[in-house]
Amino acid sequence: MLAHWASVSTKRSIHSLNHNQAKDGILNLNRPYIVFVNPQILATTGMEPGAVFVATCLAAAFGSLVMALAANYPIALAPGMGLNAYFAFTVVASQGYSWQQALGAVFCSGVLFVLLSLSRLRERILGAFPASLRRATSAGIGLFLAIIALMHAGIVVAHPATLIAAGDLTQAPAILALVGFSLLFVDFFDTAGTLIGVAHRGGLLDANGRRPRLRRALLADSSATVFGALIGTSNTTSYIESAAGVAAGGRTGLTAAVTAVLFLLTLFLAPLAAMVPSYATAGALMSIACLMARGLAELDWEDVTEYAPAIVTAITMPLTYSIATGIGLGFITYATIKLAAGRWRDVSLPVIAVALLFCLKFALG
């Protein structure tokens, strides 16, 4: 029900905005689920859910406000889905680090990103990686979130022979999650068309198709990660649902600034967060998983050297319960297939370097 409420409130907000009831597009109530889902995911590491709830709201408010003031973009920020899963299930659960150590790593990565954002190196690094692997990484994280959601709801359980199996679907958590899996999808995908191509329709690009003040936007993104780590949450990042505010008319940082205020007001819901069971947010988590998995549709399915590494990346993340393993196997597969096919010009030096580093990592354990 909570997941359904989150999506309904999102849909109604977007619907009313699109009918000029808020012509400036400053109301951006499009990610209420994060304040409930993020504490539940990070709580698996031993972190206190109430504290994570507060940190989530403060980090989102800080990042959105910096984006508004520094870059003047209608883009809001919040702790990223996928990034929090990597934090909880890979760094802490799989690699054995404490959540305190993981937060320290997030802080260090944030500081590094700040330094990279002050130069053009971060943009160049991002541009050096194959588009197919970027799409596959997003899709793989989506599949990873999907299996987490199914496990939280009791729909999928561990099995000694087949590794996983269907749970008892007659139990209340599974039934409630499935009812919320169904209603949320209807509401969510009803507005999905609005989110496609919003950046272009919003006129956020210059005459050459580039985004002005990109460095400031990257700086806002990275500084939000640093701040979020200091107060107790995983990486804070720009999120795709900001497109709803842009589609509604938001063109300046005022949209992000109002979102920051709304996240601060959400702090008053802190007592409610502790009352929400994990299966209540399974529907929201599944909808995010499906949205992220859509990247597979954009692959070049006529080129095996493109789609094969992407599938390896996407499918190994949930099956190995490790995002890092999926990314590593994807890079190794991409470089190997391209070189074996004689298409060495498609493989950049950064891709080869990353593939070799992952080979070394897997070899050394």
Rank of each mutant, 00 (worst) to 15 (best):
A60E: 01
E306H: 11
T45D: 03
V351C: 03
A335C: 11
F107A: 10
L296S: 02
L103G: 02
A248E: 00
L69E: 00
I332D: 00
G96N: 03
G202F: 09
A68V: 02
A192W: 06
T325D: 15
T336C: 05
D190H: 14
A85N: 10
A88S: 15
T313F: 01
E306S: 11
P271D: 01
E48G: 14
A192V: 10
Y33L: 13
A128T: 01
A149S: 03
T170F: 08
G283R: 01
S16Y: 14
A43L: 08
M275E: 15
L339I: 09
M47L: 15
T320R: 12
I125A: 07
R251A: 07
G110E: 07
I288E: 03
I125C: 04
P39K: 05
L267R: 03
G232Q: 09
Q95K: 12
R135H: 12
N20P: 03
L285A: 02
Q100N: 12
S287N: 12
A257F: 10
Q40F: 09
I231R: 12
F358M: 07
G365V: 05
Q40M: 15
A166I: 11
V106I: 05
V258R: 00
V312H: 04
W344S: 10
L205I: 11
V52E: 02
L272K: 05
D206N: 14
A243N: 06
G295I: 15
T137R: 02
L205G: 07
R124D: 13
